[in-house]
């Protein structure tokens, strides 16, 4: 897809209408919108990735448009509105970028993103993504299995969980100036979940380097879990013995658990998880257990009470 096919970001926010009408005139509303549009950062130049493997674990469903994938993001480090990250993520500097690999491994190291990406053949995988807010997308990710990286680091026998940390730098991530969440964003997986071949470290989408607002330069993708497990802009991966804290479950433990497996039978306390709206569609569709990946992953949770371990 060519860059110039992409239309400029949506700036018609009710907050702007609110400010403008508060000032009491439609003329000022127009002025505010015009200014906002002029201030929008130009998109960074796209960088193509060379993909070695296509189609592994790929769904045949129609991918969500590049425009929607890049202008409907939950990435509170750049603001809490869905369109905020597209507007504000220009300040992120994903190159050069160091990732610390540490904890219960025989080969702890700090590695640059370019070096890391070169170590593994990149695969394109079209995954469903189900947000805990009951909407979903289909995303053509580019990346490599987290398990491939972990095996190379040689985990010790004490490594039972993997803890991930996002960048914490309010100069690059202006949303961190407000404590909407406990910064930095942290996430975690059980080691068997992390080693599962579906679990992906993504470095791109639609065949190009990850746009800033999608979690550049490196993010986690766990397609059978709610989207918030997919931690973005990772700076640290640490193997640990105990279950690590995770941002959303720390913030609201009754609403968000450690596992966060997509489950139509276990509702969020404030809304139903039985259905979802696929972005680009008007009517809702039924949500599938494990987001449709039950055949691949259900055995990881054999014997567990998933209503309790939500």
């Amino acid at each position: 897809m060519a860059r110039d096919e992409i239309t400029p970001p949506q700036l018609y926010l009710h907050r702007r209408e609110f400010l403008a009408l508060g000032a009491g005139s439609l003329a000022s509303a127009t002025a505010v919108l015009a200014t906002a549009r002029a201030c929008a950062a130009p998109p960074p130049p796209a960088q193509k990735l060379s993909i070695a493997v296509r189609g592994k674990f790929t769904t045949e469903e129609k991918p969500t448009s590049f425009e929607d994938l890049t202008h409907y993001n939950n990435f509170y480090e750049f603001g809490t509105d869905k369109v905020d990250p597209a507007q504000n993520a220009g300040s992120l500097r994903p190159h050069p970028w160091q990732i610390s690999l540490e904890g219960e491994i025989k080969k702890p190291q700090i590695i640059d993103i370019d070096q890391l990406t070169k170590q593994f053949p990149l695969e394109e995988r079209v995954y469903r993504m189900r947000c805990v807010e009951a909407w979903s997308m289909v995303i053509p990710w580019v990346g490599f299995s987290l398990g491939n990286l972990l095996r190379r680091l040689e985990p010790t026998s004490r490594a039972k969980y993997v803890a991930f940390t996002s960048l914490h730098d309010p100069t690059q991530m202006p949303g961190q100036k407000r404590s909407v969440l406990d910064w930095p964003y942290v996430e975690g997986l059980r080691i068997d979940e992390a080693m599962h071949p579906l679990t992906l470290l993504a470095v791109g989408l639609y065949g190009q380097v990850l746009p800033h607002q999608n979690g550049a330069p490196l993010r986690l993708v766990v397609p059978w879990k709610y989207g918030f497990k997919g931690i973005k802009s990772i700076v640290k991966i640490r193997l640990v013995a105990e279950q690590p804290p995770t941002t959303w479950s720390r913030m609201a433990p009754r609403e968000y658990g450690f596992y966060a497996n997509v489950n139509p039978q276990v509702d969020h306390p404030r809304w139903s998880q039985a259905k979802e709206r696929r972005i680009g569609e008007l009517t809702k569709r039924k949500t599938l257990p494990f987001n449709g990946y039950a055949t691949e992953v259900a055995q990881l949770y054999a014997g567990m009470d998933l209503a309790h371990n939500y």
Binding site: Q10, K82, V83
Partner: peptide, 8 residues
Amino acid sequence: QLGADPIA
């Protein structure tokens, strides 16, 4: 121009 999830 209602964005990716126009209904929401």
